[in-house]
Amino acid sequence: MTGTNRSWHRRLAVGAWVFTGLCVLGVLGVVLWSMYAFTHLAEERKNCCWAENVTPEWMARTMGFQVPETATDRRAGLNSNMQYDVALLTFTVTTAEADRFLLPLQREGTQLVRNTHPEEPGYTRSDGFSHLGLPEPETFVDGMRIGGLCHGDTKTPEGQAVRFCTKIYAHEFRPGTTRIYLWASSDAPIGKPPGSH
């Protein structure tokens, strides 16, 4: 093989290595960019669309619930996305107080049921209670009761006052103490509290 042929083969080999390296770098760049975009989009969706200045008092009035005066650790949120608005309200009371709160919100002849199909621990949703710093109620089994109602499902004044279809979770997380979770959705805009953007 002449020197010219060797030189040509060497250049061809170097060119192939350079081309392969550029292809690998290109693929790696696309993968890294996709991972960044996916992570950024997931974080953006998680933090997206939450109204400001949502107080538990405002949310209780908006949803149509009378929170017991003895309730502690009250939290609320309002998420407005492209499809529907979600209202969140949660508070802690004694289990006896929780039962008094829940009874007029149950259809006659029904009762809250146990969570027989829990989500895995760590489960979150973009319009859920994790926004309020709490585990999602769907992950609990022990001490968890689940129900729900829409406006007019009961003839009680409490049931008539409820404005949106609401999922109700009652979690007795320690003996004698229950956290109530209220999750409501509306196809129509719920509206925002004063001072919210």
Score class of each variant (00 low, 15 high):
N47Q: 14
P118F: 04
E52L: 04
M59L: 11
G77E: 11
G77A: 15
V54L: 07
E97L: 03
E108R: 09
P56L: 06
A98Q: 04
R114D: 07
E120P: 00
L78N: 11
E69M: 07
N79H: 15
N115R: 11
W58S: 06
Y84G: 01
L102K: 00
M82T: 12
M59K: 12
W50N: 11
T116K: 11
Q106E: 14
N81S: 08
T116N: 12
E43V: 05
D99V: 08
T94R: 05
V93T: 15
A60D: 06
A76V: 09
L105P: 04
R61K: 14
R125Q: 15
S80R: 12
G122K: 06
E52W: 01
T62M: 08
V113D: 06
M59A: 15
E43Q: 10
V113N: 08
D127W: 03
C48A: 15
A76W: 02
C49F: 07
V86W: 01
E108W: 02
T94L: 06
D99S: 13
Y123I: 11
P118S: 09
M63E: 01
T62Y: 00
W58L: 08
R114I: 04
E108F: 04
A60V: 03
E120L: 11
F101S: 08
C49E: 08
L105K: 04
L112I: 02
L78Q: 11
P121T: 06
P121Y: 04
T90M: 10
L112Q: 01
N115H: 07
A98S: 13
E108K: 12
L78W: 07
R100K: 14
C48Y: 08
G122C: 05
V86N: 12
T72D: 07
D73K: 06
A60Y: 04
V67N: 05
E43F: 00
F101W: 11
T116Y: 09
A51S: 15
L102N: 05
D73V: 02
G122W: 02
L112M: 15
T95P: 00
D99H: 10
E108M: 05
A60I: 07
E97G: 03
R75F: 03
P68F: 10
Q111I: 02
N79V: 14
T116C: 00
D127T: 03
V93A: 04
V86P: 02
G77D: 13
E52M: 03
E120R: 14
L88P: 11
R100Q: 14
A76H: 06
W58Q: 06
E43G: 02
R61I: 02
V54A: 03
